[in-house]
Measured scan of single mutants.
Amino acid sequence: TYYTVKSGDTLNKIAAQYGVSVANLRSWSGISGDLIFVGQKLIVKKG
């Protein structure tokens, strides 16, 4: 599943919304830090 980052989103908010960890969200999407951008597509795998 892809999630497109919206204004005001954080990795914590997105992870909580999908019931996954921030570490997994980073790993799946190839992100090393906490910086995400509006319009960026993140990969989300539901448990």
Rank of each mutant, 00 (worst) to 15 (best):
T1V: 14
T1E: 14
T1L: 14
T1P: 10
T1S: 12
T1M: 14
T1K: 11
T1D: 12
Y2H: 09
Y2V: 13
Y2T: 11
Y2F: 12
Y2P: 07
Y2Q: 09
Y2C: 12
Y2I: 13
Y3G: 02
Y3C: 04
Y3H: 12
Y3V: 08
Y3K: 01
Y3D: 02
T4D: 05
T4V: 15
T4F: 12
T4I: 15
T4S: 07
T4K: 08
V5A: 04
V5W: 05
V5G: 02
V5T: 03
V5R: 00
V5D: 01
K6T: 08
K6A: 09
K6V: 11
K6C: 07
K6F: 04
K6H: 07
K6Q: 13
S7F: 13
S7W: 12
S7A: 15
S7E: 15
S7H: 14
S7M: 14
S7G: 09
S7T: 13
S7C: 13
G8V: 02
G8S: 05
G8A: 04
G8F: 05
G8Q: 05
G8L: 04
G8M: 05
G8K: 05
D9H: 02
D9Y: 01
D9E: 04
T10K: 04
T10Y: 03
T10D: 08
T10M: 03
T10G: 02
T10E: 05
L11P: 02
L11T: 02
L11M: 07
L11Q: 01
L11I: 09
L11S: 01
L11G: 00
L11C: 04
N12C: 15
N12D: 15
N12H: 14
N12V: 15
N12W: 14
N12I: 15
N12M: 15
N12R: 13
K13E: 10
K13N: 11
K13H: 10
K13R: 10
K13A: 13
K13T: 15
I14C: 01
I14K: 00
I14A: 00
I14M: 01
A15Q: 00
A15M: 02
A15F: 02
A15N: 00
A15W: 04
A15T: 02
A15L: 03
A15P: 00
A16P: 01
A16Q: 12
A16E: 14
A16L: 13
A16M: 12
A16R: 12
A16N: 11
A16K: 12
A16D: 11
A16I: 11
Q17D: 11
Q17L: 15
Q17W: 12
Q17V: 12
Q17I: 13
Q17M: 15
Y18V: 09
Y18N: 07
Y18C: 09
Y18R: 03
Y18M: 10
Y18W: 12
Y18L: 14
Y18D: 00
Y18E: 06
Y18G: 02
Y18S: 04
G19L: 07
G19A: 09
G19D: 09
G19V: 05
G19F: 07
G19E: 09
G19P: 01
G19S: 09
V20M: 08
V20F: 04
V20E: 07
V20W: 03
V20Q: 06
S21V: 04
S21D: 08
S21Q: 06
S21W: 04
S21C: 08
S21N: 07
S21L: 07
V22W: 03
V22K: 07
V22I: 11
V22F: 03
V22Y: 03
V22N: 03
A23G: 09
A23L: 08
A23H: 11
A23Y: 08
A23M: 09
N24W: 08
N24K: 10
N24D: 15
N24R: 09
N24M: 13
N24Y: 07
N24G: 06
N24Q: 15
L25M: 06
L25R: 00
L25G: 00
L25C: 03
L25T: 00
R26Y: 05
R26C: 12
R26T: 09
R26V: 11
R26W: 05
R26E: 06
R26S: 07
R26L: 12
S27M: 14
S27Q: 14
S27E: 15
S27A: 15
S27V: 12
S27I: 14
S27K: 14
W28N: 05
W28G: 02
W28E: 04
W28S: 05
W28H: 03
W28I: 05
W28F: 05
W28Y: 06
S29L: 05
S29Q: 06
S29E: 02
S29V: 05
S29Y: 03
S29T: 08
G30R: 08
G30T: 06
G30F: 07
G30E: 09
G30I: 05
G30L: 07
I31M: 09
I31Y: 05
I31K: 02
I31G: 02
I31R: 00
I31F: 09
I31E: 02
S32V: 15
S32N: 11
S32H: 12
S32R: 10
S32W: 09
S32Y: 10
S32Q: 13
S32K: 12
G33N: 10
G33M: 07
G33E: 09
G33F: 07
G33Y: 06
D34T: 08
D34S: 09
D34L: 07
D34P: 07
L35N: 14
L35I: 14
L35T: 14
I36Q: 02
I36K: 01
I36V: 09
I36R: 00
I36G: 01
I36W: 03
I36H: 01
F37M: 09
F37R: 09
F37P: 03
V38G: 04
V38F: 05
V38D: 06
G39L: 04
G39I: 05
G39P: 00
G39A: 03
G39S: 04
G39Q: 03
G39T: 03
Q40M: 11
Q40R: 03
K41A: 08
K41M: 12
K41E: 10
K41Y: 07
K41C: 13
K41G: 06
L42D: 00
L42H: 01
L42A: 01
L42E: 00
L42V: 08
L42Q: 00
L42R: 00
L42Y: 01
I43R: 10
I43H: 08
I43T: 10
I43D: 03
V44M: 07
V44Y: 04
V44C: 05
V44K: 02
V44A: 03
K45A: 13
K45V: 11
K45Q: 12
K45L: 12
K45P: 10
K45E: 10
K46W: 15
K46D: 12
K46F: 14
G47Q: 13
G47I: 14
G47D: 14
G47M: 12
G47T: 13
G47L: 13
G47C: 12
G47R: 11
G47H: 13
